[in-house]
């Protein structure tokens, strides 16, 4: 061990440079690792998605010509759609156009699927994002208060409330919300959607109830997870360490406890997003929204395979990118996940 220390200035410069390089490298490393995981996931998922057509035996000819079609007519239509070519060639072509943002055309009405999905996605993302925001805010508030007042009446009340709302399905909540807040009290419109360009107030009014209905599950999961990780973090020695160094309770909560408790909660949130997309199918029916979920449902009923494939590809992309964001945030708050596998 040397006792002679280097002069101060070079040390400082090295610290600063290393710090910047460290941070940038970290983000890049997380991105690279996530890409390495997500690229194969995306490939396999799209392949399975595309194989659905062959497996289902559905054909555009049946959709367009009906049950009475002659075999010649069917062959003609299938050739027109390029379905007589080898499977892998079809997949290759389809995958290339997907990468260019082209999801093909509908078997039912020949419309461009990307455009159709785009229309529905605006509605669904508005609702889902709002639901997430409500879920995160209310969940954090409830979870934090319960953890800070742990084992008191307040904690028990919150835990009880959270358990109750976690077992209520979104469609039940939706129906109750519509009948009480929309039909009974007339506070919100009961159904329909107004794009944000036509007035933020109207837009918010229309998405509030569906978002609320969807958010209950998120609130419950975030609150429970956050409460238990906060309680766990408070029992860690580094909290004692911070107390002994003379830091205030508020500071200990924000810089030490919360930071470490955030990891599991964010991971929960990452898992919640696909569920939100799934649950939107039901809520969009209740609230009369022409959203992404509704579109998926209609396409599946009509046997419109390219549309369903498009829905799946977009869902995969959504879930994957949302998880990428979660991973980036996770990598920033928790050092353990940065260590690699």
């Amino acid at each position: 061990m040397t006792t002679t220390a280097p002069p101060v200035t070079p040390v400082r410069r090295r610290v600063a440079v290393a710090g910047v390089r460290h941070a940038a490298g970290r983000v890049l490393a997380v991105l690279a690792r996530s890409a390495a995981v997500f690229a194969p996931v995306f490939l396999v998922a799209t392949f399975v998605t595309f194989a659905l057509r062959s497996l289902s035996g559905l054909s555009p000819a049946r959709v367009q010509l009906g049950e009475e079609a002659t075999p010649e007519a069917i062959e003609r239509v299938e050739a027109q759609w390029g379905l007589d070519r080898p499977f892998l060639t079809q997949y290759g072509d389809w995958f290339t156009s997907v990468l260019h943002g082209d999801l093909g055309t509908s078997w039912v009405n020949g419309a461009d699927i990307s455009t159709l999905i785009g229309l529905g996605l605006g509605v669904s993302l508005s609702v889902a994002t709002f639901a997430l925001i409500i879920g995160v805010f209310a969940g954090f508030l409830l979870g934090t208060v319960a953890a800070l007042r742990r084992t008191t009446v307040i904690d028990r009340t919150i835990t009880g409330f959270v358990t109750v709302i976690s077992v209520m399905p979104a469609f039940v909540v939706g129906i109750v919300l519509v009948s009480v807040l929309a039909v009974g009290l007339g506070l919100f419109p009961s159904a329909g959607y107004v794009p944000a360009e036509q007035g933020a107030g109207a837009w918010l009014a229309h998405i509030t109830l569906p978002a609320l209905a969807l958010s209950f599950d998120v609130v419950a999961d975030v609150a429970r997870q956050l409460r238990s990780s906060l309680v766990g973090a408070y029992q860690e020695n580094y909290v004692t360490g911070a107390v002994v160094r003379g830091l205030s309770p508020r500071r200990i909560f924000f810089t030490h406890v919360l930071r470490n408790a955030l990891g599991p909660t964010l991971a929960t949130l990452g898992q919640k997003f696909p569920a939100l997309v799934g649950a939107s199918v039901v809520t969009e029916w209740i609230f009369g929204l022409q959203g992404f979920g509704r579109f998926a449902n209609d396409s599946a009923q009509a046997g419109d395979v390219p549309a369903v494939q498009g829905v799946l590809v977009v869902s995969i992309a959504l879930v994957v990118s949302f998880n990428l964001v979660v991973n980036l945030v996770l990598a920033h708050v928790t050092p353990a996940s940065r260590r690699g596998v």
Partner: peptide
């Protein structure tokens, strides 16, 4: 204290 690793915040 003993076990110094546990007395420092692992995230910072």
């Amino acid at each position: 204290f003993q076990d110094p690793a546990s007395y420092l915040n692992p995230a910072i």
